[in-house]
Design a protein around this nucleic acid. Sequence first.
DNA 1: ATGCCGTGGAAACCACGA
Length: 258
Amino acid sequence: MRIATYNVNGVNGRLPVLLRWLDETKPDVACLQELKAPNEKFPLQAIKDAGYNVIWHGQKSWNGVAILARGMEIQEIGRVLPGDPEDLHSRYIEALVDGIHIGCLYLPNGNPAPGPKFDYKLQWFERLTIHAKALIKSGTPTILTGDYNVMPTEQDVYKPERWVNDALFRPETRAAFQKLMAQGWTDAIRKLYPDKTIYTFWDYFRNAYERDAGLRIDHFLLSPSIEKRLKAAGVDRNVRGWEKSSDHGPVWIELADE
DNA sequence: ATGCCGTGGAAACCACGA
């Protein structure tokens, strides 16, 4: 079973690329972030025609998340990260697919830091950590995937020294990620490739993709009960080179059948 | 060292992203 995550940076503007990627790689489940579309402008028919069931939580202009599943039922668990009724950003959606509990998330960017946006990022991170603890304690096979907007270590940044004051790499941000991981989650890419330079994002300018000046900020976190099934993981980095691509590349994992 | 590009929406620029 292949599960993927892809920050599409605009689901409608990205539709041809998204459909081509779905057709070429045929993930069984695909988690999308940054739809940048309200609920009523989600391209439902095109996704259905591609063979996918889908649930989504949109928002005008910004954010927005979706879970797609090919030929499988999607049982929605929730579409709000608990802990702040005032937070109206569409950054989280959660479902049960084929017995797997899947959380699809778009963690706030947090720049400029310090400042209110960075405070919001850290608060969101704390809420995610509280929620994740309950998920991992439940024992259900769980995957928390999406755009975390965190480079966990220096290994995940093309030029770490340039990023130390950035919201994606500040000590507080990395500490928050470490605190979450300490609950017992497995970073799928790092589990299989502990020493390899792997990026999931390349800026649109300065020829970042051509220079491989990237960041690893899209992650798959696996609970202990599903980590045992991890067979393979990777980044579809060629997709980043397509015309009208997102600035992120899709990330995927392959799970063994139970 | 830097939104230099890209997207969406509103209004012929601005907010936002990482």
